[in-house]
Write a protein that binds this DNA or RNA. Sequence first.
DNA 1: CAGTATCCGATCCGATACTG
DNA 2: CAGTATCGGATCGGATACTG
Lengths: 155, 155
Amino acid sequence: MAPQEGTAVFDRHTAVTIAEFDGGSGEKKFRKIFEEAQQTRNGPCPVRDVIARISDKWSLLTILLLGGYGTLRFNEIRHRIGDISQRMLTVTLRHLEEDGLVSRRIYAEVPPRVEYDLTPLGRSLMEQVSLLTEWATLNGTSILDARRSSRRKGR
Amino acid sequence: MAPQEGTAVFDRHTAVTIAEFDGGSGEKKFRKIFEEAQQTRNGPCPVRDVIARISDKWSLLTILLLGGYGTLRFNEIRHRIGDISQRMLTVTLRHLEEDGLVSRRIYAEVPPRVEYDLTPLGRSLMEQVSLLTEWATLNGTSILDARRSSRRKGR
DNA sequence: CAGTATCCGATCCGATACTG
DNA sequence: CAGTATCGGATCGGATACTG
């Protein structure tokens, strides 16, 4: 069980940690995932790209909203989210539409009516995101506690 | 099956979409998830908070890396990610540590040695994130294709 | 109703220089 | 080795005013 890939010599405690980790369920898989997420340096990579696109203040929330309520009009989305500006909702929806995650249907009426919905692709993403969200509701207080106690101890 | 909550009258196509969606697996659950993600307006909410914290360029990638390789030293992380600046790695790791997702062990040696690892909380998050990443590797090309064809069509 | 257009402050993030 | 400190450009995102 010699160290590889330039990792330093382990002390006893670390060795145990690594051993436990290696004994667990498929660390190779996670390594592969990370490596795939790394291809950006040599060319475009979907993982980093997806991360970049959903890493903003409103995308995930919008996807969750459309996932939960189905077809919605512009101002329905706006008011359900509540504290999103008109500009940012427009920008967010355009991005999601460009990526094929949200569909946009315009009805030639006066006053205009525009309906948004998740595409099948968007719905499949929403299912993953909802799992992440469930994790957050379960473990969010742990994070907030850790954050508070870390701040109380200074820095 | 009357419309509720202020939604407009549906045309036939939309009605079908909604019906299919309602007939599916538990849209109420997603509604609940979204509503929980909404509590921020009335007070702090874990979901929006977690979203805000991982919504940056490097957090998810760092979590994936530590998940895949276990204990790593500062420069090991740095070089495996490759294109992260020293400053951003420090900032990212401090945030993750504050939130109790990453542990930091300092060894009183010269030259200094600092080892990072996921905490159990961080590991459980990593498992969710890795699912999201698997989705991205599977569907990333669909997104890139959609984006490209949307850009080709102008705007 | 569903946007656009413009402005501007906040923050993110990289580059660089320095340090225990 | 593993940081900290400082600067400046880029981008994000809110407020406001206007429009088909």
